[in-house]
Amino acid sequence: MTGHDHDHHHHDHSELSETELRVRALETILTEKGYVDPAALDLLIETYETRVGPRNGARVVARAWSDPAFRARLLGDATPAIGELGYAGRQGEHIVAVENTHQLHNMVVCTLCSCYPWPVLGLPPVWYKSAPYRSKAVKDPRGVLADFGFELPDSTEIRVWDSTAEIRYFVLPMRPAGTEGWSEQRLADLVTRDSMIGTGLPKQPHEVA
């Protein structure tokens, strides 16, 4: 058994190395042919590892919780409203914000690939791109929520948005109780990535220091 496990692990490891080598060679070919600039590649990676991620979306949500006029603009036409905070562009050219209430819970999926609102959430997590989520979200969203460890009352309607076009959906979660008078910055700390996809809820006040 141990030997088999070891072999299996070794097999996975060499497959990874093969892909690693293939990508490295491809980058060399493309660079030497003058098609790509390695400095541009570094900047693309840095952008999505350090600048564009779910903290952007959390700021949008916190502003919507704090500023009723912004909330109205966000729900009316999300792309320019989100642009007010400086978030725009690739994979967020046409954004629609949908609001959770006690009666209605929104959840976003892309059954055909991995469409996701990059400017506000960054790149999608592996589970969002996985077969179980893409297959189950449209048929059994309550089962998906159970996989994430929570359930909604039967009386709450679930609304699933399958992102089949270039419209990107962004969930505005409900503001947790007990946060009256909180600053936008404090509120943003309550906003989780999953709460803006609809597979989670914001943190409660006692969960943040």
């Binding site: 679930i158 699933v160 399958d162 089949t164």
Partner: peptide
Amino acid sequence: SVKTSVDA
């Protein structure tokens, strides 16, 4: 209690 949409 579920409604699902696509963009068509």
